[in-house]
């Protein structure tokens, strides 16, 4: 923690039921090494108890505190204030895009969760099937009893950042396509009809915004491209199987 304090203005998006969206401003003294979520919590604790936002774990595991900070999607519990504003600056905090606003900063991410279910995205998978950055060299090959959490924390930042998702509510979205990729077409051939569609793989136009905002090394864009490759291999081999 640094000794100096910054004076910042927190502009929080407010919208209760039947209310027009607007911003409330709060003047705060913050430590630049605090996180954005800390500042939002301080407003709630000491200035306005009606500010509504989602948060739980405070260490980038639960995926609840995704918001737009100065227009860019951030997991606010791991976003340093010093990285997104300066002394005397403004922090504009808005809810994620492309989800209905429940209240203020909280959105309903039900569509994301149900779509993850639709493609059978796993929250836990055998280590042997996970794409780990560093695989343990002496891992018993094929031993499926060792499991690990999937990388995706279902925070919804990618769905909010994707320019293609802004116009089509039926687009499965980066996290869901990444979940399908992690399952693999080989293991789940029925995914082909879901992802080889206009609202699946082909809505992606390589903007890489999902990968840019992903706080959890899912790299959805890479997984979408890999799934495209899987789809092509499957489509081609079907042509040859038929003939």
């Amino acid at each position: 923690m640094s000794q100096n304090k910054w004076k910042i203005t927190l502009k929080i998006h407010r919208q209760k039921e039947a209310e027009a969206p607007h911003f409330d401003e709060f003047a705060l003294d913050v430590d630049p090494d605090e996180y954005v979520l800390d500042a939002v919590e301080r407003v709630w604790a000491f200035m306005d108890r009606t500010v509504c936002f989602r948060h739980a774990c405070h260490h980038s595991t639960c995926g609840a505190c995704g918001m737009r900070v100065n227009g860019v999607e951030k997991l606010t519990c791991i976003t340093y204030i010093r990285d997104v504003t300066q002394d005397g600056g403004t922090l504009k905090v808005e809810p994620l895009r492309n989800f209905p606003v429940i209240s203020d900063l909280a959105v309903d991410m039900g569509s994301l969760y149900s779509r993850l279910d639709t493609v059978g995205a796993r929250s836990v998978l055998p280590v042997t099937q996970a794409e780990a950055e560093k695989k343990p060299a002496d891992w018993p090959a094929g031993d499926e009893q060792y499991i690990r959490l999937a990388d995706c924390i279902e925070c919804g930042l990618c769905i909010s950042a994707c320019p293609s998702a802004a116009t089509s509510s039926d687009y499965l979205g980066p996290a869901v396509l990444a979940g399908a990729q992690a399952n693999g077409l080989k293991r789940n051939p029925e995914l082909l009809g879901l992802v080889d569609t206009e609202d699946g793989l082909w809505r992606c136009h390589s903007a890489f915004e999902c990968t840019a905002v992903c706080p959890s090394f899912v790299d959805p864009a890479r997984r979408i491209m890999d799934l495209r490759k899987q789809v092509f291999v499957e489509r081609f081999s079907r042509v040859f199987r038929r003939s």
Binding site: P100, S114, L172, E198
Partner: peptide, 22 residues
């Protein structure tokens, strides 16, 4: 609240891998 987008409608094949190949 968002029932209309929770039910993932059957994906439409307006685009597919062959069209994209073109």
């Amino acid at each position: 609240m968002s029932a209309e987008i929770r039910n993932t409608s059957a994906p439409r094949s307006g685009e597919n891998s062959w069209l994209w190949l073109v």
